[in-house]
Simulated scan of single mutants.
Amino acid sequence: MKTIKLLLFFLAACFLNACISNNIAWKTNENMRLVKIGMTKEEVIHLLGNKYMITSSSNDAYGNPVEVLGYKSDADEEYKLKFVSNQLKEWNREHVNKYTVKDPSILN
């Protein structure tokens, strides 16, 4: 009986964890409607949260810092936000292909 209770507790914990992770991803999708060109990096992070990855960092031809942040929206999408001198200049949504072919000879 104790084992069954432990198993049910474990399954419930896994289910709740999946719901929370999915909610974070969908919240990003929802909040992207509020993102506007010209916002500062801090404003965007405040809006979308700090669960991002810096996907690129460099300087443009004029020496201005350029940084691209990546946010997951759901299992198959990622938003890329490009900041120049700490100001949002552009963003796009990319479809992430989860299924890749490792051996190109398979396609022939």
Rank of each mutant, 00 (worst) to 15 (best):
I45M: 03
L88V: 13
N86L: 08
D74L: 13
A75D: 14
E43S: 12
M39V: 02
A61R: 08
D103A: 05
C19V: 07
E30I: 13
C19D: 04
I106N: 07
I20P: 01
K27S: 09
K82F: 11
G63D: 09
Y52E: 09
V101R: 09
S21P: 01
S57Q: 12
V101P: 01
V44M: 00
V44Q: 01
M39Y: 04
V68Y: 00
N64K: 13
K89C: 04
L7T: 03
G38S: 08
N50Y: 10
E77S: 13
F15G: 09
R93M: 05
K41Q: 12
E42A: 12
W91G: 04
D103Q: 10
N23P: 02
V35W: 02
S58H: 14
L7K: 07
K36V: 01
L107R: 03
L48K: 00
V44C: 01
V84S: 01
K41A: 03
D74T: 11
N97P: 04
E67C: 06
I45C: 02
T40G: 06
K72V: 12
C14H: 13
L107A: 15
K27L: 04
L34H: 04
K82M: 08
L8Q: 15
D76M: 10
N92E: 14
D103I: 02
A61L: 08
L69Q: 01
E94F: 14
